[in-house]
């Protein structure tokens, strides 16, 4: 078939496109998860002084479209860093932007998960004489993490899908690569469907992994 032939012919480009997509996507997922969970815990249990900036950050980021965050990262951050002598390449700007959005999402999810835990769990820990850090690490965090898996999977999927927006700042990820191949004489419909399927595959793999993790760590609420 036309599409498969051209894909194989330009497999180097396609491969680097995939690498770009996957590295930006999973990089953002990783950063968002680690930083987001910490931020979420601070949101839930921190005092007003530390929690407020995070609250403001989350509320601001969630009120702006991801694409605009990407443009702001590329243009504003890039411009600002330029005067310090650092050149921000498009892929890095994209990673930063996706991470910023991801952190805000994960922080909210984390906060929600902790606040949904029954109060009796903290009581039981206190009654046994545990100090709060112990209660947090042994009782609350394990339960919250498991509860977080479904919404987290949603965020992860959105971040992978968000990498396509990086094509609009010139990152040669999968979508831009496809556009370039189409410009060289490819069938737009088939190419888009082809890369659509690739994203479908990546996202399905993430969902399967998440479901497996959930099954492994799942405990039932008595």
């Amino acid at each position: 078939m036309n599409v498969i032939e051209s894909l194989i012919n330009s497999r180097d480009d396609v491969f680097s496109g995939i690498v770009s997509t996957v590295s930006a996507g999973f990089g953002a997922i990783f950063i968002a998860t680690i930083v987001g969970i910490v931020a979420g815990m601070v949101l839930t249990y921190g005092n007003a002084l530390v929690a407020w900036p995070i609250r403001a950050y989350v509320d601001i980021v969630r009120g702006i479209p991801g694409l605009v965050v990407i443009f702001i990262s590329y243009y504003l951050l890039g411009f600002a860093l330029q005067s310090l002598g650092i050149t921000l390449d498009a892929w890095a700007a994209g990673l930063i932007a996706l991470s910023i959005v991801g952190i805000a999402d994960v922080a909210e999810i984390t906060r929600g998960a902790f606040q949904a835990l029954p109060r009796g769990q903290t009581d039981a820990g206190k009654a046994a004489g545990m100090k709060f850090p112990t209660i947090l690490s042994s009782v609350l965090l394990p339960q919250a993490l498991v509860q977080m898996i479904p919404p987290w999977t949603n965020t992860a999927t959105e971040l992978i899908k968000g990498t396509t927006l990086l094509s609009l700042i010139g990152v040669t990820e999968l979508l831009l690569t496809a556009n370039q191949l189409i410009a060289r004489g490819g069938n737009a419909l088939y190419f888009f469907i082809a890369i659509g399927l690739m994203f479908f595959t990546i996202n399905t793999l993430i969902q399967l992994a998440a479901r497996a993790a959930e099954r492994k760590f799942h405990y039932q609420i008595a």
Partner: peptide, 18 residues
């Protein structure tokens, strides 16, 4: 749920005319 919105937009605007 699994396909990026941008690709869906391109399909409907650039792809379907084909």
């Amino acid at each position: 749920r699994n396909t990026p919105l941008l690709i869906l937009i391109y399909i409907s605007y650039f792809g379907l005319p084909l």
